[in-house]
Design a protein around this nucleic acid. Structure first.
Lengths: 210, 210
DNA sequence: GGCAAAAGATGTTCAAGAACATCTTTAGAA
DNA sequence: TTCTAAAGATGTTCTTGAACATCTTTTGCC
């Protein structure tokens, strides 16, 4: 039993990470196993020591976003890991709709980079996608005051708003329109939640942008 | 000059239509020229009498949605072509978030079926995508009462909401969650616009569903 | 009726890539 | 040290598909 278990796990993680970034950038169909392995510093043949088929890395690549130990730079610039409640919810909205996120195709959330790809994927990827979505729903859900519509109902709508705004921004050929889409989504979220009146100054982002 | 001009135009239209449906279902990368031509009742070779490359049919396939002379069944079931103003806006929301639309992968709006694919596409497709988006913005824009935020701003947010809800619904593996996403998006739109209080009874959809 | 020009069909080329097969290297165990 | 089981590299197979090349068919025109 050469190559320690940790070594194999490390390698496997590198493969998943490189798969995630390449899928984000080029889509599942346009990425080859050689691309993935090359970006992980390996050669194509070794892939099958870790996975049986290309599809088998798809779900893990999607989940890597929420399982990774370190958040992406665009997240770190807007989200204080110590934040809680509405302050955290606000930071998540800011991060998602930020210019940083817009520009980071490789490191973006799979809900932004891959929704229509995943919709055509197998049960497994779509399960992974759902788990990413439910994580975001969970972050929003508990930060609404009681009202007629349930908290979950409103949280789902917010996720649709934030994801929809960014997905459309990425798909149009007009930078100004893309900015407008992100801005209008952000304003709409704040109009319905009031989260923009939450103080986040003492939990300041590392760098302001977007 | 054999084959009348109309004949060629008809054939070309059939190719674009079949491309649109196949792209919607399988994504640009997963569709072959043979598939497109076969579905149009032709053979692969003839493709290049109409287009120089596969990419050249992409924008037209996206635009076909708004240029087609006949709307899709899922649209006809919810939209009265004679309707105007908020009544029309409401019908468009209903159509977009309907079960009919959810189920019709082939005939769906490209903003639902292809957003992440188009985001990776060339300038040309993304221009087509923008024109589809702007058509929907235009249908919403004029139906808001004056307020602090501009009409366009609110229209953009609504499009993000409606598209986002359906895109996410398509991508998850859980039918109940998919339904919840569509329902919550619809409720959120009505909460912010009041369009659900608009009467559309005399402009009734052909058939109730979804 | 015959001609021609373009549509469309058939055939070919060439490259890419998934899956697998077989080497080579690695490092833990005896 | 040597042996070995698994990781990873290298090499192979076979299919697919975009692009193009060349037939065949169609139909307006003389």
């Amino acid at each position: 039993m050469p190559y320690s278990l940790e070594h194999k796990q490390e390698t496997r993680k590198r493969i998943v990470q490189s798969a995630r970034r390449l899928f984000n950038r080029n889509g599942f169909a346009e990425v080859t196993i050689g691309d993935i392995m090359g970006a992980a510093g390996l050669t194509h043949g070794g892939f099958y020591k870790h996975f049986n088929a290309k599809e088998d890395v798809y779900q893990e690549a999607v989940l890597e976003f929420i399982c990774a130990e370190r958040p992406e730079p665009w997240q770190m610039r807007h989200i204080d890991p110590a934040a809680k409640g509405p302050a955290l919810a606000r930071m998540i909205v800011e991060a998602y709709l930020s210019t940083d996120h817009f520009d980071d195709r490789d490191g973006s959330c799979p809900m932004i980079a891959l929704p229509s790809d995943v919709a055509r994927g197998n049960e497994s990827v779509r399960e992974g996608f759902r788990r990413v979505l439910e994580m975001m729903v969970g972050a929003f859900e508990e930060n609404f005051p009681p009202a007629e519509r349930t908290k979950r109902d409103r949280a789902l709508a917010l996720v649709s708003m934030v994801v929809g705004g960014m997905v459309l921004a990425r798909a149009v050929d007009d930078k100004a329109l893309a900015d407008d889409l992100r801005d209008s989504a952000r304003r709409q979220v704040y109009e319905t939640t009031g989260w923009d009146r939450i103080d986040t100054d003492d939990a300041a982002p590392l760098r302001k942008s977007g």
